[in-house]
């Protein structure tokens, strides 16, 4: 199964890999949601949706249905 923003756990960080450009709103791209940038899941709303993210330093909330479309690669914390 591919890893998306939706599969992140709270306070996990990941690198944005790829998404279908036709589904993702331009506004989200302008907020910094672009391949190669980091994303951190900050909060999950009480009923599991929406998700509150730190994308490339911008704080935004998006719905799960959008988060499912954005493929990421988890950053492994190595000590």
């Amino acid at each position: 199964m591919r890893t998306t923003i939706h599969s992140l756990k709270k306070s996990e960080k990941a690198i944005i890999k790829d998404f279908d450009i036709d589904i993702i709103p331009l506004k989200l791209l302008e907020m910094g949601c672009l391949p190669g940038n980091t994303v951190e899941l900050l909060q999950i709303a009480p009923f599991g949706d929406p998700l509150y993210l730190d994308v490339n330093g911008s704080h935004v909330a998006i719905r799960v249905e959008t988060a499912k479309e954005i493929e990421v690669e988890l950053i492994k914390i190595t000590l």
Binding site: L28, R63, T66
Partner: peptide, 10 residues
């Protein structure tokens, strides 16, 4: 067609 993007200001 849904999209929802909200900035969470400080």
């Amino acid at each position: 067609k849904t999209y929802f993007v909200v900035e969470m200001p400080s």
